[in-house]
Design a protein around this nucleic acid. Structure first.
Lengths: 169, 169
DNA sequence: AATCAATTTGCAACTCGATGTCAACTGAAA
DNA sequence: TTTCAGTTGACATCGAGTTGCAAATTGATT
């Protein structure tokens, strides 16, 4: 399933329906997360927010992220530490999905599948575990990078990670 | 599948077979990771290592972790930030498995399933993605906590997270 | 056993994402 | 419009992880 097939929650709507106070700063931040095509980290979010409200503070960004996370309106991602320690955020979707992070080019694809839903059901059934959040991240080499690069991914090869850091590979 | 059904790689063996220089510090660290029942973070690993070799340094711990990660001999986990920003490590297993982190009691269960393997195959087939590492973490409430606690997990309830921090819930 | 280049370690300073504190401010209910 | 709990900005602080470099160690070679 393509990313654009995934439905994102309307954050503003959810917030107001839950009686959360809507400040100017929150509105800007929430809109940015909602609109964003890519996965935002806190620093990028701050940077973009300052273009709309120059006075906005870093702490507010983190506090808003915290709020949205607690309300389960956004998901937090690591993207296999493709870009270091940062965390990334996205508006929640109606269906959980996998993030495929390419160690070669850094691209991140999204993928959802009924198999994932079945796996979740199995977890609940077999372990008696009530699932609240899931995070499935996969690291490797995307289709176009596989086509370009001759050498297969080899364990321990220095060459396989090239310029990227913290690859887990 | 129970954790003890998962086979872990023998780290020392793998390292020597790949011609990695074996220093005293590495031996201690690698043995500790191998022996450990639970998932170790860097600080805990350092602490335990110092009981065997008091002079061992923090930087060495991180460098060894980095080495093992690059050689794909250990996996890195977040455990849904159950305990803050720390990363956790475990010797790789023959089969990928899910980590189920209970937000209530902090317990971490492991679970592997053919469905997970099928999902991985599907990812490869549909997306043309060559998988190198996977990380599937699930947060929620474990069986015994579900039995104890009356209230279901509710979005935005302050009570659902209680003393634990950074719950993503 | 002694030699030696290459690798690894310890140390300490540093980076950087994230959090805590507190006075000042503000959204929205009355 | 007033009121005040909730929110923000400023700034200090935290803590996990990294880095540069001199000294120490490894293990292959003689």
């Amino acid at each position: 399933m393509k990313p654009d097939r995934l439905k994102r929650y309307s954050l503003l709507q959810e917030l107001s329906s839950r009686g959360v106070r809507m400040t100017g700063q929150r509105k800007v931040l929430v809109e940015l997360i909602q609109e964003s095509e890519d996965h935002l980290d806190a620093a990028t979010l701050l940077e973009r927010a300052r273009q709309r409200d120059p006075g906005i503070n870093r702490a507010t960004v983190y506090r808003t992220i915290e709020l949205l996370k607690r309300l389960r309106l956004i998901d937090e991602l690591d993207l296999m530490r493709l870009n270091g320690e940062k965390h990334f955020y996205e508006a929640r979707t109606n269906v959980d999905h996998v993030h495929l992070a390419c160690f070669e080019c850094g691209k991140v694809e999204e993928f959802s599948s009924p198999l994932f839903e079945r796996l979740k059901q199995e977890i609940t059934r077999v372990n008696g575990f009530t699932i609240r959040v899931t995070r499935l991240e996969v690291g490797g080499r995307c289709r176009s990078c596989c086509a370009q690069v001759r050498t297969p991914i080899e364990c321990g090869e220095e060459t396989c990670c090239k310029s990227l850091k913290n690859l887990n590979c």
